[in-house]
């Protein structure tokens, strides 16, 4: 197995440190951008769909046990987010996706899926209460974190090696 496959797992830990200590300072109404998801989308596009799926599972597992939250909810949501991001990993369009605003749109899509699934699993398993308005769930727990994460992901687009925006 190639050693570069493990690089995102090494990056995960300092990023999680930033996620839990610095990111709360830039929250807006309790919504914080998900740096882990940006990392997941980046490496999923860079490699392939299977890699993205497995990486999402590993990230979700590590996040769940380190944050001390419901184990499994992050695993499932990040796995599906990684799987979705992996769709965009075709050889011919990889560069286009990674170095254009398309990257932020993919992050938006994956973050939306991740947030919705995470909320759904943590809500339904822990409290057996899905009385929350579905439209509210869609916007507040899906779209808002998605938009914020997508905006932050623009940094990747601007600072990617080739800099040029296609």
């Amino acid at each position: 197995m190639r050693s570069q496959y493990f690089i995102p797992i090494l990056i995960f830990f300092p990023l999680l440190l930033i996620q839990t200590t610095i990111m709360p300072f830039i929250q807006i109404s309790g919504v914080v951008p998900d740096l882990i998801l940006i990392l997941l989308v980046f490496y999923s596009i860079n490699n392939n769909q299977i890699y993205g799926t497995v990486l999402g599972f590993i990230f979700g597992f590590l996040f769940d046990i380190i944050a001390g939250i419901l184990l499994g909810s992050g695993m499932i949501s990040k796995t599906i987010a990684g799987f979705t991001a992996g769709y965009f990993s075709s050889e011919t369009k990889r560069d286009v996706y990674l170095r254009s605003f398309s990257f932020s749109l993919i992050v938006l899509l994956c973050s939306f899926i991740d947030s919705i699934l995470y909320s759904f699993f943590s809500a339904s398993i822990s409290a057996a209460d899905i009385s929350t308005n579905l439209i509210l769930l869609f916007f507040e727990q899906g779209m808002l974190p998605g938009f914020y994460t997508a905006i932050i992901s623009l940094i990747i687009v601007f600072f990617s090696p080739r800099r040029g925006l296609k």
């Binding site: 799926t53 599972f57 944050a67 001390g68 184990l71 499994g72 695993m75 499932i76 796995t79 398993i125």
Partner: peptide, 30 residues
């Protein structure tokens, strides 16, 4: 196939949340 296997594994972990082993694992990790 890999996606389904991993989701099923996640669901298994969800059901194991309140077992002592998982609690200990979380305590050590966090």
């Amino acid at each position: 196939i890999i996606l389904i296997i991993l989701i099923l594994t996640g669901l298994v972990f969800l059901s194991l949340n309140y077992t002592p082993a998982v609690k200990n694992l979380k305590a050590v990790a966090f």
